[in-house]
Simulated assay, not measured.
Amino acid sequence: MASVSISQLKMGDKITQDVHTPLGSLLFYKGKVLLQRDLEILQAFLVTQVSVDRPEDYRKMKEIEEAQEATAGDAASPVSASFYEKYDKMVALVKKAFKDALVNEIPMMGLRSQLELLIADISDYNILTFIPRQMKEREYMYHNAVLVALTSYCLAKWQGIQQKELMQVALAGLLHDIGNAKVDPDILFKPSSLTREETEEVRRHTTYGYNLLKNVASLNEGVKRAALQHHEKIDASGYPLGVKANQIHQYAKIVAVADIFHAMTLDRTFKKGQSPYPVLEQLEEESFGKLDAEYVQTFIRKVTQFHHGMIVRLNDGRMGEIVFSDRNHPTRPWVSVNGVIINLVNERSLFIQEILLK
Rank of each mutant, 00 (worst) to 15 (best):
M11W: 01
H249F: 04
M167Q: 09
G273R: 11
L23H: 08
L46M: 13
L155T: 10
S25P: 03
P330Q: 07
S237K: 09
A72Q: 11
K96C: 00
I15H: 02
N346A: 06
A149P: 04
R112M: 12
F98S: 15
K358G: 10
P330Y: 08
T16Y: 01
F288G: 01
V255R: 08
P55E: 15
E281R: 05
D74F: 13
L213W: 13
V50K: 05
S123I: 00
S7H: 13
T21A: 08
S193H: 09
V4Q: 04
G24T: 00
H262T: 05
R318I: 00
R225I: 10
V183P: 05
V183I: 14
A170K: 06
A245V: 02
R348S: 12
E354H: 08
E198C: 04
K190M: 10
I41W: 08
P333G: 09
G110I: 01
L194Q: 06
L344E: 00
P185D: 08
L174I: 02
V47D: 12
G73I: 01
Q250Y: 09
V340T: 12
L39G: 10
A97N: 06
E200T: 03
A258D: 06
G242M: 12
R204V: 04
Q49L: 07
W158A: 07
D235L: 09
K136E: 11
L280V: 04
L155Q: 06
A217Q: 15
Q274V: 12
I119S: 01
F28P: 12
K358V: 00
L213G: 13
Y140W: 10
K182R: 14
I127A: 02
E285I: 06
T269S: 13
Y251M: 14
N104Y: 06
Y87W: 05
A263M: 14
V257L: 01
Q353C: 00
V296A: 05
N328T: 08
T207F: 04
L35Q: 14
G242L: 09
L212A: 13
K302V: 03
I64P: 01
G12L: 06
V257E: 03
V91C: 05
